[in-house]
Nucleic acid binder design. Structure first.
Lengths: 105, 105
DNA sequence: CGATAGGTACGATCAATCTCGTACCTGCTG
DNA sequence: CAGCAGGTACGAGATTGATCGTACCTATCG
């Protein structure tokens, strides 16, 4: 059962939602940038400079969070997103490498 | 440039279309079943027994073909589909294992 | 030849989703 | 306190995609 903020537990991470989330180029870009950071790095949603409105950014981050790809934690004013690297690697070994290796678009 | 039947070459296989194709559970099922066969095995579209109409089956196989996941060759009356195992493995190492490991739904 | 089976093409429908504007909440910061 | 910046919630519009029925083509089989 997902927690209060909509994060699935490791066992609950399923391939369908993960692939659906990664099917979107903007969301792959977020995952790719997070994967390039040191492990555990957290960034605000807005720091990615996605070329869409704030409302759409929220939409994409919800998709990533509910699929289990990122973890979002409140930090005062803003909300920090970090990659669930170990969790994804445990469920789908190699998947992050594939996404991280994609050239920018 | 894709060939006459819509197959992209190895270099043309891109992550976006591949993930979009694999986002559908029916298409993952086809790939999973093909991955379980010996390499090079070819099956007709209808042999998968997908619970949808013929027209929809054609739609799904086109998505798989245009993404570069399967190769379809005419054989007289019917059309045989085979997994482009080596091509996918070359472009996205490990991806097929992830899909093949998914439990049936 | 006629019937049937495997597939495709086209058009329609319905659901999902990407996108946005607006309104709103919450902390900072002057 | 007033303003602003980061985010979310909600509802709307537009687009994509899954599904189907029908018509059609081609090869095989009786």
């Amino acid at each position: 059962m997902p927690d209060d903020e909509g994060h699935p537990s490791v066992e609950e991470i399923e391939l369908g939602p993960v692939l659906s989330a990664l099917a979107d180029p903007l969301r792959r870009r977020v995952v790719r940038e997070l994967a390039a950071e040191p492990d555990g790095a957290a960034r605000t949603c807005s720091s990615f400079g996605l070329p869409v409105s704030k409302a759409t950014v929220t939409h994409h981050f919800r998709a990533l969070r509910e699929a289990g790809l990122i973890r979002q934690v409140d930090r005062g004013n803003s909300r920090m997103a970090s990659l669930r690297r170990a969790d994804i690697e445990q469920r789908f070994p190699g998947l992050l490498d594939i996404v991280a290796a994609e050239p920018e678009e």
